[in-house]
Design a protein around this nucleic acid. Sequence first.
RNA 1: GGGAGAUUAGCUCAGCUGGUUCAGAGCAUCUGCCUUACAAGCAGAGGGUCACUGGUUCGAACCCAGUAUCUCCCA
Length: 895
Amino acid sequence: MSLATTYSPADVEAKWYQCWQEQGFFKASPNPKKTPYTVVIPPPNVTGVLHMGHMLNNTIQDVLVRRARMRGQEACWVPGTDHASIATEAKVVAQLKEQGIEKKDLTREQFLAHAFAWKDKYGGIILEQLKQLGASCDWDRTRFTMEPALTDAVLRVFVDLYRKGLIYRGVRMVNWDPLGGTAISDEEVIPKDVTAKMYYLKYEIVADSSQPLAVSFEQEANSQQPAAKSYIVVATSRPETIMADVAVAVNPADERFHDLAGQRVRIPLLGRDVPVIQDEYVLTDFGTGALKVTPAHDLNDYNLGQKHNLPIIDILNDNGTLNERAELYVGQDRFAARRNIVKDLDAAGLLVKTEEYASIVQTSERTKAVIEPKLSMQWFMKMEHLAKPALEVVENDTIRLHPAKFKNTYRAWMENVRDWCISRQLWWGQQIPAYYLPDGSFVVALSAVEALELAREQSGNAALEMSDLRQDEDVLDTWFSSWLWPISVFDGFADPDNADVNYFYPTNDLVTGPDILFFWVARMIMAGLEFRQEVPFRNVYLTGIVRDTQGRKMSKQLGNSPDPLDLIAQFGADAVRTGMLFSAPAGNDLLYDEKLVAQGRNFANKLWNAFRLVKGWEVDAALPFAHDKPVAWFGARLAAVVADIDDHFEKFRISDALLAVYKLVWDDFCAQYLEMVKPAYQQPIDPETLRHTTAYFEALLKLLHPFMPFITEELWHELAARGPRDYVTVAHWPKPAPPADSAALLAGMDKALAVVAGIRAVRNQKNLGPNKPLALVIKTDEPALFTAYEGVLRKLGNLEALDFAGAGPAGAVSFVQGSSEFFVPLEGPVDTAAERARLEKELAYAQGFRESVQKKLGNEKFAANAKPDVLERERQKLADAEAKIVALEQALKGM
RNA sequence: GGGAGAUUAGCUCAGCUGGUUCAGAGCAUCUGCCUUACAAGCAGAGGGUCACUGGUUCGAACCCAGUAUCUCCCA
């Protein structure tokens, strides 16, 4: 035989992927004779490259899609990318900078030209990488969130929601990303634990001639000092914002500050003074109990300021530097300004002390910059109206989350949902279709032409010209595109009644990470209900995060993430796919270990070698069917395991489904079945056995195909001559009917295999190699149990003789299975004492077991309360134990 | 600070409504084998007071309460 002993994936993968595409197997179109099965890909960033998270996520999708296809559904997996406005814009800006071009020197059109050029160059990479993984997407349907049709959908939705009163413009405290130069939504903010410094600053009390002060404001640090104080100590973590202070607040219940009400204090280093206000919001046990109020730069302070009618002083520029309103440190970055002001405060004797404390800073998910709370005019979307039905469909299981624990997380967010800030101060994205009139009012319209019409109407000024209108500078959040994805990829906005969207929507399953449950999943549900009155999908499979063996996230900085394409090159895509899935229950983080991929490769190799064995058999047409029992048994096993696998899939237990096929192939098929039927060296096989074996092999290839598409396709074609469209990719998922006597077959073979294991244990104990034929003598009341499997026993046990007798022969090692005794006669002396000790130990164990069962059965309350089937099982246990005890006792007696 | 979830073999996890073999799998470990499909393999073996403390029950890994530790979400 010329086939290599190891499987070589590199030789076959590209070939089959090309064949599948040429055959058009991945293409889907509405087909009334089939049920649709639709998955939309979570669109990766257009400029992204494949990482381990994508590998896991897309492997799972492909497994689901391939199985659905084999089950006769019209399987449609829609690929695509999103424009990732902030990340992509940042990349393009950085790239331009390298070329010496500053964004601010470009017009919007020029910048977009650069950005699209970048997208055209790098945009397709990740999708090409998915092909190497084997992803069976319908590539003709590839979409991009910023392509014209999807942009049109976004604008339509914006206009529609605006007209419904769900989108509004307003000044709010937003999360400002100074590096990205844009507002970001709450969900894009990542809190990080840090050790921060708390600075204790002296605010001088402005002398009020009528009321001399007599209270100690700083008891601890200066307790030995005279009571009269001229300053108050305020603790802050952001000393650079004191220039934006508009008040100092204390709790009215705090007796330390009673006399301060109505006083004014002077901001350190600045000449300006501010009032002391009282509010229950202030914590008495945090810092000094006195809080500086900076409405422009802190959300809580903003609310406090609104309540007390305080002014707002914004001292920061959009890029995080201080502006002229700060008066000091103008032009310096906020962190530089902090360092400098601390120095200056200290020099001026205004810094009492600094303390370290555990704090949290908010950072940008995209740029990692520390977020600056900032007041600005933004566009918002009202969420309450949309959230209610979206929560309902998850609560009532119209949409199921897998694992279900995420229902709690989902509920918590939906019940406390806040309005969505949808505007971004960027260029890469859909420009907001709002047009400002010269008088500052605005109109919202799909096109400039329509906007002009509206503007003339609204203003009553028919002379308005296009040039009088100015479109809003901002673009929409990328998620404002992505939330429409399941509808927009089927052009469901421009043409809501088209055949594709009617057939493929709602989609079936969505596979994504829990980190975007709110960003994306929740909003897609809202969009589906709002725009099609139908949920976008039925199941949401939430994957875990891929981590290294130490539980750390994969990251570029740590360098602990393997390059997926290197892995595929080294082990093969099938191995990588199975490696990812071996240890990936839904919702659990996956501790990635290359050993898992190696296990996948080993499995592929095992399959390959099983194939080599079967392929090498010569047939002798004259031979009678010699292996009815193994053939019938494996048929029963196959039916049982396929039922298990289907059940696992129903419950989205993908790892369990894989493990079930893995064991069926490796243990049942290779280790047992093939060993039972394989002819002796250079002997031919009978045609009937070969026919069954080949059919089983095909069934296994089908079951494996969703997990290992490449090797199964290769072997499918190697195993038999195939017609032009006969591929395992489009073969029918097995639905084997269990044989009528399935239970008896499975139980009978279990017994026989237990005897084989007994014989092998004897071989191991006595150091007898597998090549040495042995004899077996059985003492049993039910010889038929074993004669039916005599062939199996002889083959797997390598027996030269198998006899029944009433007593064991002398000089034999024995073991007990059920109520039967087995003797293996050995040459040479047998260590009787050791044999006796072993049997006695087994006997003591069986007796103890019998006793516990007897006790249970003897308990009146048990007999009264236990269900009949439980009672029956216990009686059976007792009977089995007693039979075993009798057999063991006789074995001992016979020694 | 509030909420959710977890804690089972060295590692990663199953264990469905409490009751079949006194807790299972994969990997890892140990022992013996290069037995003509496969050493990326074969045969066999060892390994767990199911986090802890109480409670309910004839019976608890499973139900209840508390404790500890960890993870996630929200502030």
